[in-house]
Amino acid sequence: MQLTPDDHIWWQLGLLKVNSTILFTWAVMVLLSAGSWLVGRRLQTGARMSRVQHVLEVVVHVIDRQLDEISPRRPKGLLPFLGTLFLFIAVCNLLAVVPGFEPPTGSLSTTAGLAICVFLAVPIYGIGAIGVKRYVGNYLQPTPFMLPFNIIGEFSRTLALSVRLFGNVMSSTMIGAILLIIAPLIVPILMQLLGLLTGMVQAYIFAVLSAVYISAGMDVATTT
């Protein structure tokens, strides 16, 4: 049994390889980009608009509002970053119900990569908002003795972020596969539906936690 789609290699040349994680990530990227391009070609600015545009506007508006609530003084570029994070994870998890599709979020490499992006985004947005000195001073709060613990906290929460998403998606996939063997009728469908719900929840949690970490990197510094 494969615990991660990384093991399913489609093409390899030396260190370069295309496994299921990368392949299905590209598929999701193509799906999102093409869908966005198709809708974005005929955007209506009047009162009448297409249903797809309406849905996308609702999604973007909800994400924007959530970010406003979490970080009222957020920088301008935070929406594309966190929005893409949420949409990518959500679409990957939703497509898990498609037979043959292996969600990239079920790979620890993917979740680790996303967590590393968040890990890097925190100091980037924090320094961009308040400067290097004040951001670094944030790690000396409340006392300089807390510096090691704060650094460990940064790493541990990044690790938790990646493992949480990976564990949930992987376990959901595994449970589905096991139930398919034990009780092949009806039960796997219910579990798949439950998997859709947990997948959306995990996407939301990942995005919100990322927003909180980035916002905390700016807010704490501004209060010191």
Binding site: V60, L79, T110
Partner: peptide, 23 residues
């Protein structure tokens, strides 16, 4: 995946977030 994600950020920002927010 990091590279893919960064590319996806650019793509979605180019084809989704900017146009939708602009509209």
């Amino acid at each position: 995946q990091i590279v893919n994600f960064l590319i996806l950020i650019w793509l979605l920002n180019r084809f989704l977030f900017k146009p939708i927010r602009g509209a």
